[in-house]
């Protein structure tokens, strides 16, 4: 990895102008695994002076700055009151504390990595991403957005509500990417079902959710609907068949848990 300039942005506008200045300019978030990717950059743009590392709340939502570290997110009192802390369950399963002190929530989302635990863990909830220049879209819209979004992620808004959540990362050891990950939640009496790392990036199962939210009581059937709707693939970590088997079990177990 080679970088010509390390640029400490003085404002979001300043950072945005710098980002526009060259296709080889990039925002630096946590910086993890960056050198493994082996790219060269003209300027790396540092947002650390912009106060984006705070977690705050309003009556309706929790607002997480994009530069909040994964560790601060999981340790946050504010987040712990949100569905009994469920949106942070996934973060706790990411590598070790010495990693999560660096990795940011914003960085985890912007990359839309197929192996992301953070995205799977957040997707059951009503999450809106706030960008600069002013633009908002739901997390799900962003995941489905075609191409690279030419904007800076400023904050993640998580809508408050009643309910609870479940998250499972199937892995070989603690320092591993997920073989598959599953997040299930009951948000204001409405079921949400998400499966990620299939090995594609997380997605909600609308068929399972529709069945459950129209009175469907058979969780095993809901799990079947989820694996029918979502696509799964082989890769070096697991076969498609095994991923499907795991998703079925853990969607069912998750639903059992959140329905209690």
């Amino acid at each position: 990895m080679k970088v010509n300039e390390y640029y400490r942005a003085s404002s979001l506008e300043d950072a945005y102008q710098k980002l526009q200045a060259s296709p080889k300019n990039a925002i630096v978030a946590g910086g993890l695994w960056m050198k493994k990717m082996g790219q060269s950059y003209d300027s790396l743009i540092d947002l650390s002076k912009l106060g984006l590392d705070k977690i705050s709340e309003t009556k309706d939502e929790v607002i997480v700055g994009s530069m909040v570290s994964q560790r601060d997110f999981e340790d946050s009192k504010i987040v712990s009151f949100l569905f009994a802390g469920a949106p942070a369950f996934a973060v706790r399963e990411v590598m070790g504390v010495n990693f999560r002190n660096l990795a940011t929530i914003g960085g985890s989302i912007m990359g839309r990595y197929p192996f992301s635990d953070v995205i799977t863990g957040l997707l059951p909830y009503d999450v809106t991403l706030e960008f600069y220049p002013a633009q908002k879209m739901s997390l799900e819209e962003y995941l489905n957005y075609k191409g690279k979004l030419n904007a800076i992620l400023v904050a993640i808004h998580i809508k408050k509500g009643e309910g609870k959540g479940f998250f499972k990362k199937v892995k070989t050891t603690a320092l591993d990417f997920p073989i598959v990950n599953i997040a299930v939640a009951k948000v204001n009496k409405e079921y949400r079902v998400v499966v990620g790392a299939r090995p594609m990036v997380a997605a909600r199962s609308y068929k399972a959710m529709e069945y459950l939210n129209n009175g469907g009581k058979d969780f095993a059937k809901a799990a079947e609907l989820a694996v029918e709707e979502l696509s799964f693939m082989d890769n070096k970590d697991a076969s498609k068949e095994y991923r499907v088997d795991l998703a079925k079990v853990y969607v069912r177990r998750g639903l059992e848990e959140v329905s209690k």
């Binding site: 400490r8 630096v28 910086g31 960056m34 050198k35 540092d46 010495n98 990693f99 002190n101």
Partner: peptide, 20 residues
């Protein structure tokens, strides 16, 4: 691993420029 602002981080992944 070492501590930046008292928090353990992997120093192989912290750009020195970022710790001003």
């Amino acid at each position: 691993t070492l501590l930046v602002e008292g928090k353990p981080v992997m120093s192989c992944s912290v750009l020195t420029a970022s710790i001003e």
